[in-house]
């Protein structure tokens, strides 16, 4: 059973086709990157996967559950993080983790919070309001929140945006460790090509709502005959005809 199975997914907002009949699968344990310029349809795709937006047509199955009919069963097993969706800033880190632990019905919640605090070096921050943390600390808390229910599928929107290289590197290492330990699948939208090259087994490239190419980072670089994934991204974003969508 795939972690994600998307078929002929389409979403239009007025005259704008945000997602235009895309198909893709994310196998269990895979880390897949969703690339594309601003407005390419990445955030809409993530929102469709999470059930925040209903599709005009097509289907989304997450961990075997049809998101149109059975999304809450899937939501119990997935989690999400985005720098554009905040955690309540007046609540302490521990309170935030406790809130989401309850929302996801996590068993042994206090032990899980201690475990996450140890993993992400949050113990000294547990009693501090989330609004008083630095960007790096907030990112660690956001990732701890995203892992509170030990998700089988993690959806991340620009997980290292605005982070310094050290914090971003640590965060990537945590993601790789989590995948290795749990076999969870991860779908991440990112503009950081170094990150995508390091983390992703496969990359999906979107332009104007369509998937215009896909493959492993190495395969894409080789196919386009360019130096790195950033050059591939620029080539696609600036209008090279699609190769093998």
């Amino acid at each position: 059973m795939d972690a994600i199975d998307v078929r002929a997914l389409r979403k239009r907002f007025g005259a704008t086709v945000a997602v235009d009949g895309i198909d893709f699968r994310v196998p269990p344990g895979a880390i897949v990157g969703l690339l594309g310029a601003n407005g390419a349809g990445k955030t809409t795709t993530l929102a469709l996967l999470l059930g925040l937006i209903t599709a005009d047509s097509g289907s989304v199955r997450v961990l075997g559950h049809d998101m149109a009919r059975d999304r809450f069963a899937a939501l119990q097993q997935i989690n999400f993080s985005s720098p554009y969706v905040a955690l309540p800033y007046r609540l302490t880190v521990a309170e935030n983790l406790r809130v989401y632990g309850h929302l996801y019905s996590v068993r042994g919640l206090e032990a899980r919070i201690r475990e996450l605090a140890e993993t992400f070096a949050l113990a000294p921050l547990l009693d501090r309001p989330a609004g008083q943390l630095s960007a790096g600390q907030k990112a660690r808390v956001a990732l701890a929140k995203a892992l509170v229910n030990r998700p089988a599928l993690l959806l991340l929107d620009e997980p290292t945006a605005s982070l310094d290289p050290d914090t971003a590197d640590r965060l990537r290492a945590w993601l790789l460790r989590y995948r290795a330990e749990t076999g969870a699948a991860i779908l991440l939208a990112s503009h950081n090509m170094t990150e995508v090259e390091r983390l992703c087994d496969e990359v999906l490239v979107m332009r104007a709502g369509r998937l215009v190419d896909r493959g492993s980072p190495a395969a894409l670089i080789a196919r386009y005959g360019l130096a790195d994934l950033e050059a591939v991204f620029l080539d696609i974003a600036r209008g090279r005809p699609e190769i093998a969508a």
């Binding site: 925040l52 809450f72 939501l75 997935i78 999400f80 985005s82 969706v85 955690l87 309540p88």
Partner: peptide
């Protein structure tokens, strides 16, 4: 509105909370 102002609704609506 507290959820709206704290930009937290996205997290709430993608949790299993009905």
């Amino acid at each position: 509105l507290e959820e709206v102002w704290s930009r937290n609704l996205g997290h709430v609506f993608v949790s299993p909370l009905r």
